[in-house]
């Protein structure tokens, strides 16, 4: 039996000795999981912690049965961070950006082989930006830039894709275009772990919802089973401004 794609056991993550999220979570191959919660609910913290980008305060984190930094091929996990549109003063093309998702495969310094060119071209095609591959990233719309970031993650040919708020700052037309991309990836068996405020256009794609409130999982199940009190909360967290006794805010811990 193959190990789960992601396994968190009482894993706590946070910043400067403050635990902002602690959770148990298991993701299996082929699932499309939406991590949902309001601003500050800890969903992005959970993802960044699982990927080793922020401090871990206890618990277990495994990707494919191993700690993340011991994976033989890191590009098996694709990551699309939440970020503002391109603001670098130096221009770069879509192809240059997407190529960075392929770098680790060729080593440093490495050759840009034919197989790498093909993988980059396929990734750009998968998000529908083939006619913009030589366009400057800063000249793309917000939605197109987000698609370019998805292509960058796909260039490493991952089997799991982690997306942090892919619809943030993206108009409804681009959300629909991204949904088509995600649906296609799900159909091809790629596991998707998506941080969202609300399901929105992804309602028909997501197979499981994990709802976080102030750093803890309050619901984990099929979208249809989600309590009405949680569904549609979006930014309107009823716990906002209240003291939640179940939230483990721990101070003075030493990062693992």
């Amino acid at each position: 039996m193959s190990p789960p794609v992601l396994r968190l056991v009482d894993a706590g993550f946070g910043y400067r000795s403050v635990v902002a999220a602690r959770a148990d979570l298991r993701a299996d191959a082929g699932e499309v999981i939406a991590l949902i919660g309001s601003n500050g609910s800890g969903k992005s913290t959970l993802i960044k912690g699982a990927l080793g980008l922020i401090d871990c305060y206890g618990g277990e984190v495994e990707w494919f049965g191993k700690p993340f930094d011991r994976l033989e091929r890191r590009s098996i996990v694709g990551y699309v961070p939440q970020r503002q549109p391109a603001t670098s003063p130096i221009p770069s093309t879509v192809e240059e950006l997407v190529r960075t998702g392929r770098l680790v495969r060729g080593g440093i310094p490495g050759r840009y082989r034919l197989s790498d060119r093909r993988a980059v071209a396929e990734a750009i095609c998968a998000v529908g930006l083939e006619s913009e591959h030589q366009t400057l990233v800063r000249e793309l719309s917000g939605g197109q830039q987000r698609r370019a970031l998805v292509a960058r993650a796909l260039a490493g040919q991952p089997t799991v894709l982690v997306l942090d708020e892919p619809f943030s700052g993206v108009d409804s037309q681009s959300q629909e275009a991204l949904t088509v991309v995600f649906r296609d990836l799900a159909d091809r068996g790629v596991t998707l772990l998506i941080v969202l405020h609300e399901l929105g256009p992804l309602a028909g794609v997501v197979t499981r919802v994990v709802h976080l409130v102030r750093g803890v999982v309050v619901f984990d199940g099929e979208p249809a089973q989600r309590p009405t009190a949680l569904a549609g909360l979006g930014d309107h967290d009823p716990h906002c401004g209240q003291t939640d006794k179940h939230v483990p805010r721990t101070f003075g811990l030493v990062p693992r």
């Binding site: 980008l53 670098s88 960075t100």
Partner: peptide, 27 residues
């Protein structure tokens, strides 16, 4: 010239570079 693409990747998005396995601090 040889390491330029890796310098570019880290300069463009340090978090993505770290997750994809590039040695960010060394670069």
């Amino acid at each position: 010239a040889a390491v330029g693409p890796a310098f570019f990747a880290v300069g463009d998005d340090e978090d993505f570079a770290a997750v994809s396995g590039l040695p960010v601090l060394a670069l």
